[in-house]
Design a protein around this nucleic acid. Structure first.
Lengths: 241, 241
DNA sequence: TCGTCTTGCGCACACTGTACGCACGAGGAT
DNA sequence: ATCCTCGTGCGTACAGTGTGCGCAAGACGA
């Protein structure tokens, strides 16, 4: 009488259904993005991701070398969402770059976990979508009269700004998501502590007061636009090199 | 007969030496920075940090609420390294901001793990050093004629840029540290793969070629300075609001 | 001499990434 | 048909993680 054995001979065998989806790199990556969007970076574990795909944790390793590689893939996937206006409808390079920058910021805000992951791992910069984006934006700057080298510098400047802003915005959004609160009420709840901490800095208290009288989201939008305009001004009126 | 017991009555007791260092928030944080500098973000675990302090892992929790709080403290600690020229020796607000920006970049490059940590956790923005730095830089901008609101926007623009640049530089440095290679030879080793990946993007290939003929570090320095100058140009010649 | 407080620590739990090797279905060769 | 070789999924296992809990022991005031 087979007692403890897993009844190997029963014909209620697990019924391998190799039918359709199985598992594929693309499928894994896209599900990882969904998981990250829904539950944030801390929730991305191989086990949980596997579970969502109806697979075991280690099965993923057939399609992805390790967690770091998975993250590189996921980052490139998000880069793929950023659109660059083609050279045909560029009424001016300036608005084209503005469109890109806003698109990139929107992508970051859609996926706030992105920036918390940009700094770690190699992030090879060699993903197809990263390359595509870089190429098309370079084209924009070169068409605007920037030299080969300077076009790269200008692009780097704009992208650094967008990512830098994104990091602080995404940190805020992540914290909000965790506490399940509204951005406004969160700020109100934090104010006493903030004012206490900044007691000796009247300038900061002024800032807090200034921030208190407007919608936090509008402030973020305005701040982003402000900096972007100044940067584009600086690039447009650059000294002849 | 006490057999398996840890010999509780022996006078070879562990010899509690509560003498001096014990454990303190400051000590923990400063040792954490050393550990991070030496071995990177992956090496920061409560157990390893405890071991470096001659303490058990859970002892740290008497002084630090959890790992996230430890990270907030460590971030603030690094912010404390960034110096702001006082209002006395500001020959011009522009050079003062340049000094700050270079100081911030230097701090990031000294502690490349910083940026990989900025995006996660709340990073309350309420650490004493963060407040101090913000206050003094705000003072700079206000003294330069920026209004209360606009000074904050200008500061945000510059800092976002510095952090954005820092993230990509730090990612490079971290990768270098891991592979123990020189920046130059790393780039040479990577080139074939990069050129293969960018096969269809002649503009990118041009860029690679351009980059190949100069010292990578000089390129990074130049790029940083270029963007900073453009941003300051844009801020200096801002339209009257 | 006795509480009470603070501090360090051992243990335990749930969870992580991932190496290893088995099992099983598909296809090609004999 | 029979066998062999792949590619793929998964169970198990190991070392390592953050941290809650409760005990022990010194410090200190009454």
């Amino acid at each position: 009488m087979p007692e403890k054995q897993p009844i190997p001979s029963a014909w209620t065998r697990p019924k391998r259904h190799r039918e359709q989806p199985a598992l594929s790199r693309e499928h894994i990556v896209s599900e990882a993005v969904k998981l990250l969007d829904a539950e944030g970076i801390d929730a991305l574990s191989m086990r949980r991701l596997g579970a969502r795909l109806g697979a075991g944790a280690t099965s993923l390793y057939r399609h992805v070398a390790n967690r770091d590689e998975l993250i590189e893939l996921v980052v490139d996937e998000v880069y793929g969402e950023i659109e660059v206006p083609g050279p045909e409808d560029l009424e001016s390079w300036r608005v084209a770059v503005i469109v890109c920058a806003h698109g990139a910021r929107a992508a970051i805000l859609r996926h706030p976990w992105l920036v918390s992951v940009l700094g770690q791992a190699g992030l090879a910069y060699l993903g197809p979508n990263v390359l595509r984006l870089n190429d098309r934006m370079l084209a924009l700057f070169e068409a605007a009269g920037f030299g080969t080298r300077e076009a790269d510098q200008a692009l780097g400047t704009v992208m650094a700004y967008v990512i830098g802003i994104g990091i602080s915005e995404a940190a805020t959004l992540t914290m909000l998501g965790r506490s399940g609160q509204d951005e406004r009420e969160w700020q109100d709840r934090l104010r006493p502590a903030a004012e206490e901490a900044a007691r000796d800095y009247p300038r900061l208290l002024d800032q807090f007061a200034e921030h208190a009288r407007e919608d936090p989201r509008k402030i973020r939008d305005d701040d982003f636009a402000y900096g972007l305009e100044r940067i584009l001004d600086g690039l447009e009126n650059r000294p002849a090199s």
